[in-house]
Computed example of a mutant assay.
Amino acid sequence: MNNPNVCSLSPADIDCSGPWLLHPESPVENLIPSLKKYGQLVPVLAVEESGKTLLIAGRARVAAAAKLGMDVLVRYIDAADDISKAVLHLEENSARPADESFKLGVMRFFAARMEASELAKAVAPLLGVKPKSRDMKFWLDWMELELEYDELLKLGHIPLAAVGVLIKLDDTDRAALVRFFEKLSWSRSNAINFLTWLYETSRRENKSIVELISAPAFESAGESESPKDAVTRFCKAAKELRYPTLSELEKVHNKIVSEICAGTKWRVEPVGSFETGEVMIQTRFKSREMMEKAMADLEAIAKFSGWEDLFEVGRDK
């Protein structure tokens, strides 16, 4: 070796336990054939501290070499503290994908070691996030949440964007909402709508969210209820609290429509939020036979007396 900073060490002499090793361990099986055939082409990165060799990047290469009984080529670099080590680790692994679970771990690591004001500037570029972007604002806000929400984000049960509402709530209300996300995976739109409707109702009625979700409609999902149906039920209950008048109009509308369109594939929906008194009717078909059946159904339902009642829904609200 011509580089004086590169040496050969036994894998057992390399400490691979540093907290700055933020990427999860990679499988070593894919490296073994290459190591057998060509040897180690790229040294791992490490620092020397107090007589120990601390790994910065290349954990999979060390593990593969250990399985093969080979020594490891190590290049020594300078990194004075955990933050510097983590930055170098992330730079060396910049080509690896970074999902939200990984980004969360990175954010928590740096948030525990630097001021929040420096977090966006120092960490965002390492994760491919723009320092002044909305996503970075979400990450900064997430650092203020309780750790129990971290697990929900890692599992994909709650979207990162939900923090925009969660951060406005007090600790007690946030703790009470955890149960809605523990066993259910929420889409971004459903989660944000659900939380926003509860938050806005809480402010309007001067009630805590704990009080609002004590209603029977917010009881946890039973064994016979599918996750999708449970999310739909929770969203519907929150929307009815936030928009009681609109929700009542929708119930009246749906009852009339169920009678008008019974036995057909036609759907009738209000235009807007009942402000115009207009409705839209639609269906789908993929053959002439289905089209002819739909047209016959339309002719029949056009004679239904309930249309007059439907047009009046919301007129005097």
Rank of each mutant, 00 (worst) to 15 (best):
A238L: 04
D309S: 15
H89C: 09
S84G: 08
L310A: 11
E205M: 13
L104K: 03
A60K: 08
L140C: 08
E248L: 08
S226E: 09
N93F: 01
L160D: 04
P227N: 04
L147S: 14
A302Y: 11
R284D: 07
S247H: 06
S187I: 04
D297N: 13
L127T: 07
E151M: 07
L184H: 06
P27H: 08
A215C: 11
V279H: 06
S287N: 12
E299T: 07
S226I: 11
G69F: 09
K255V: 10
T53I: 12
D13L: 10
E299N: 12
G51M: 06
L45K: 13
E48N: 12
F181A: 05
K183E: 12
K239T: 11
E269I: 12
V62G: 05
A46E: 08
V231S: 02
G105P: 00
A237L: 03
L145V: 01
L160K: 02
Q282N: 14
D170E: 14
D78M: 07
T201L: 04
W186R: 03
H23Y: 15
N5S: 11
R96V: 03
E115Y: 09
G272L: 04
A124L: 04
Q40S: 09
S214H: 12
V72E: 05
W197F: 14
E211G: 00
S258P: 04
C261V: 14
E312Y: 06
D82K: 00
L177F: 11
N30E: 07
A46G: 04
L249G: 06
L184Q: 10
Y149A: 12
E292C: 02
I158H: 01
T53W: 02
N190R: 15
E151T: 14
